[in-house]
């Protein structure tokens, strides 16, 4: 079912910067005409495959007895509590660049592993770029009301357990709204996806 408490947005093909891609590909600063040509091709292919989608919800946040009530789940993660200091609401979101990117990586890896590696790096960089863009959009809207969005924090960071993924998926209904699913090992499909929590606080604080 569609739920107005949970919104979805489509961003389409959002390409990351070259610098980010090369970083994820483990290429550092090395200049190489061969790799450069492959990267061009990889970017062209990715442009057709990337389809950024985000679903999200704004939830109240409260602290009680050393636990955080995130509005959809409880957690005793100290690292998350630190990241959400002074916040009274959270932005919960899931972002994915779509299953076509998984398919493209699988397909091209069969032909050239180098291409597969570059595409994998593009996918990883692309979902980060998608998160950045989405958080920037939300942050700007909040800023108008005098609120600030804190940096995002994902399950698996610090002491925030990966098992929180189950609650996130159950709450956001990611599969129906953006085609993002969770498997038994708590891995996401499409693979190039991110779930995260960002705190919202008054700018005055």
């Amino acid at each position: 079912m569609m739920d107005a408490r949970i919104e979805a947005r489509t961003y389409g093909a959002l390409l990351p910067t070259r610098k980010e891609i090369l970083r994820y590909a483990g290429l550092g600063k090395a200049e190489d005409a061969q790799v450069e040509a492959l990267l061009e091709e990889a970017l062209t292919l990715s442009h057709k495959a990337l389809c950024g989608r985000v679903c999200f919800s704004l939830l109240p946040l409260s602290h009680k007895d050393g636990e955080l009530d995130l509005g959809f789940a409880l957690t005793d993660s100290a690292d998350l509590a630190r990241a959400l200091r002074h916040c009274d609401r959270i932005l919960l979101f899931a972002a994915t660049v779509g299953v076509e990117m998984d398919r493209l990586i699988l397909r091209e890896s069969r032909k050239s592993m180098t291409m597969g590696l570059l595409l994998g790096a593009i996918g990883t960089a692309a979902v980060e770029a998608l998160c950045d863009r989405f958080c920037k959009d939300v942050g700007e809207a909040l800023a108008q009301k005098g609120e600030l969005l804190s940096p995002r924090f994902s399950p698996g960071y610090g002491d925030l357990p990966l098992s929180l993924q189950k609650e996130i998926f159950s709450y956001l209904g990611c599969s129906r709204s953006i085609g993002l699913t969770l498997n038994e090992s708590l891995l996401m499909t499409p693979a190039k996806s991110v779930t995260a929590i960002a705190g919202i606080k008054w700018a005055a604080n």
């Binding site: 299953v99 699913t181 498997n183 499909t189």
Partner: peptide, 13 residues
Amino acid sequence: GPTGRMLKPFGDL
């Protein structure tokens, strides 16, 4: 309705 899981090879079902 759907199971909410993705089938192999991209998912694990």
